[in-house]
């Protein structure tokens, strides 16, 4: 465990070097909030409620949602694993006395932890600049649930992207798959619109999937727009999916690594 903590610490410190990336994370957070502000101000013109949301509740959702989305760097794992395998440079991870999934997960966690503070600052600036009244839940249980779900969701996404990356052992070229799943998952996590606006039947299906609980459920809990019981259900679903995903990713890596032709092999 200590070696993974060391990777986490190293990744956290490395972010200081990439200052422009930090600035871009802040820009991404601002861009999401600005897009939501402009669009939903127009949608709410002359209306009190849309899909059960007030304008304040909707903007609060987007502010929290943009923070959670901006600290998810898991997509980099699939890209990096894919390139390392294709370039024949994955060998280093095979011989190092460290589980590659643990390594990439710890790297991502360090990056997320570093960027969290900057995303919060960017969101706070936006909220002040656009005069948004961000309404947060006062229920401590809801806040704790969301606080537990966010890292768990990031762990799930890390496992999921590591699994996709390892498919490169078999298919070599997975670029288009990386893009396709990224677009669909952005919708399924609720990063584009609150999933509560979807038809109930579809929402019932989505709540059984893990992606819904990566962004949507924590954001709804933090803004006090979801019952605690539903949050508990989401946490349970996410925990089960995370355990399953990590096991699948580990097993896939174990099975496909024998197909690897790399430098020094």
């Amino acid at each position: 465990m200590r070696k993974y903590l060391e990777v986490f610490r190293l990744s956290f410190k490395m972010q200081i070097v990439w200052r422009f990336d930090v600035a871009m994370t802040m820009v991404a957070t601002v861009a999401r909030i600005v897009a939501a502000w402009v669009l939903w101000q127009a949608i709410f013109a002359g209306k009190e409620l849309v899909g059960g949301f007030t304008v304040g509740a909707m903007l609060s959702y987007y502010v929290v949602c943009s923070i959670v989305s901006s600290i998810d760097f898991s997509h980099k794992i699939s890209g990096e694993v894919c390139w390392l395998i294709r370039d024949g440079r994955f060998s280093g991870h095979m011989v190092a006395p460290m589980n590659p999934l643990g390594f990439f997960g710890s790297m991502q966690a360090g990056e997320s932890a570093f960027h969290l503070g900057f995303s919060l600052i960017a969101a706070a600036i936006c909220a002040v600049a656009f005069g948004m009244r961000v309404a947060l839940s006062a229920d401590i249980l809801q806040i704790l649930l969301a606080a537990a779900m966010i890292p768990l969701g990031l762990a799930f996404m890390a496992g999921y992207h590591f699994w996709i990356g390892t498919l490169t052992f078999k298919f070599l070229d997975i670029d288009f798959f990386l893009h396709v799943q990224g677009n669909v998952i952005a919708f399924a996590t609720g990063a584009l619109i609150p999933l509560a606006l979807l038809p109930q039947g579809l929402l019932q299906v989505l709540r059984l999937l893990p992606f819904t609980h990566v962004v949507y459920t924590p954001a709804m809990l933090l803004t006090g727009q979801m019952a605690t019981g539903e949050g508990l259900f989401g946490l349970g679903v996410l925990a089960m999916w995370t355990a399953a995903m990590l096991a699948i990713a580990q097993r896939t890596y174990g099975r496909l690594r024998v197909k690897y032709d790399g430098v020094g092999i």
């Binding site: 949608i43 849309v50 893009h179 396709v180 919708f187 584009l192 619109i193 606006l197």
Partner: peptide
């Protein structure tokens, strides 16, 4: 085609969901 095609279809789905309410 697949990468950008899904992006635009997802955006259509997003607007379609919003227009279900306004």
């Amino acid at each position: 085609f697949f990468a950008d095609g899904t992006l635009f279809l997802v955006q259509l789905l997003t607007f379609s969901t919003i227009y279900g309410h306004v």
